[in-house]
Amino acid sequence: MDAFIDTFFNIDIMRQAFPLLMKGAWITLQLCAFVIILGLLGGLALALAAVSPRGWLRWSAVIYIDFFRALPPLVLLIFVYSGLPFAGINLSPFVAVIVAFLLNNSSYFAEVFRAGINSIPKGQTEAARATGLSPAQTMTYVVLPQAVRNVLPDLLSNTVEVVKLTSLASVVSLSELLYSANMARSVTYNSSPLVLAALLYLAVLWPLVRVVSRYQRGLAVH
């Protein structure tokens, strides 16, 4: 038991590592802000393309979405970070992470938005068009507001996934939370900094996960 506590919950080591981890957490936060906001916008654009009446646009969007949903995010990240320099494109770890995760996440957000748009009955569009709204106005004022409300739990749960995803940035030596924790682990030969990082992730994500659960249950009962 002592060995267990000493390995995973060593308070002294956690205290030493704490400042380093907070620096990492700050980078994680910046990453999240970029990837979530850009992912939402990109996802929305892709979703609109995927429900477009223009065949070529619809198909390109669907192929893009399926392509990046099929590729593991870490593979994408390694490709962008270590593969592109061979073609003369050198990106800093921070930018590489944002580019890779944006490609990945916009596909996931697009799927959520698309499901939301498809959940709105045709009658809504017809009613809006019948009152003289243009297709764009119909989408903006009638369909999207309802669609977003319908898929709010899925948007939230996808956002949780994005935050978790940023931990992969540690693999390309971006000094975010997990990288800093792993650094502290290798210096101290003790896993407590990793546990501390886990606790920090939990502090932010546990409440969100609870909300997602509550939400989904509320919708499930009919």
Binding site: F8, V160, K164, L168, L194, A198, Y201, L202, V209
Partner: peptide, 12 residues
């Protein structure tokens, strides 16, 4: 298990 990034758990 839903809130923790899997890579964190794997490393721990």
């Amino acid at each position: 298990m839903r809130a923790l990034p899997p890579l964190v758990v794997i490393l721990i």
